[in-house]
Computed example of a mutant assay.
Amino acid sequence: MSLNSLFRAALLSLAASLAVPALADAGRGYDFGKPAKAEQATRTVEITLGDMYFEPKSVQVKAGETVRFVIHNNGKLLHEFNLGSAAMHAEHQKEMQHMQEMGMLSPTGMQHDMSQMGQMAGMDHSQMNMKHDDPNSVLIEPGKSAELTWTFSKATGLEFACNIPGHYQAGMVGKLNVDS
């Protein structure tokens, strides 16, 4: 088997493994709430991301509240703001690791067009179903800002975290308590 054939097979295998979770998540709801429009927010919370920290380190919200998070990346690295449970973050970290291995993520940015990589392996863009488009998550490049608005449905303990490989483990995680 030629090196080109091995490369093509490896890319097809990885694309297939990533496409299944992406399709499964597309219609998935979140038991802790749902995305909302910024104009529905009853409160805005500013979050600053530095290299390996969040400020503030914890946020209190109420069940039923719609919160607009305005996230500023003041660090020199690409970071993520992701709402979820510790188990959800562990699963998402695996997806982010795959994205990094495929060259979609660099230390400071994200490759938005994977079609060139797929064309190198004889695949069309639709076969490269790798995206970072979960409604509970945003990627923020250095010096940039992003927003995420969420309506919290029930009292629970959550985390906001950066799931870029190694960042969560370095302490880039905060507490999000949803009170009744």
Rank of each mutant, 00 (worst) to 15 (best):
N4F: 14
N4Q: 15
S5I: 07
F7S: 12
F7W: 08
R8F: 01
A9Y: 05
L12C: 14
S13R: 15
S13E: 10
A15M: 12
L18P: 07
V20E: 15
A22D: 11
L23Y: 06
L23E: 10
G27W: 09
G33Y: 00
K37S: 14
A41R: 05
A41N: 14
L49I: 06
L49T: 01
G50T: 10
D51C: 06
D51M: 10
M52Q: 08
M52E: 08
Y53K: 10
E55C: 07
K57P: 09
S58M: 12
V59M: 01
V59Q: 04
V59F: 03
T66L: 08
V67N: 00
N74H: 15
G75V: 13
L77C: 03
L77T: 11
L78S: 01
E80D: 12
F81E: 07
F81R: 12
L83K: 00
G84D: 02
G84F: 06
S85C: 09
A87K: 06
A90G: 05
A90V: 12
H92P: 00
Q97L: 09
Q97R: 14
T108L: 00
S115M: 09
M117R: 15
G118A: 13
Q119K: 11
A121C: 08
G122C: 06
M123G: 08
Q127V: 10
Q127G: 10
Q127P: 01
M128V: 14
N129H: 14
M130R: 05
M130E: 14
D133R: 07
P135M: 05
N136H: 15
N136I: 03
S137V: 06
V138W: 00
L139Y: 04
P142Y: 11
G143Q: 13
G143W: 14
G143I: 09
S145Q: 11
T149R: 05
K154D: 08
T156L: 08
T156K: 13
E159I: 11
E159K: 12
C162Q: 06
C162L: 01
H167C: 07
H167Y: 09
H167K: 13
G171D: 04
G171W: 07
M172F: 09
K175D: 15
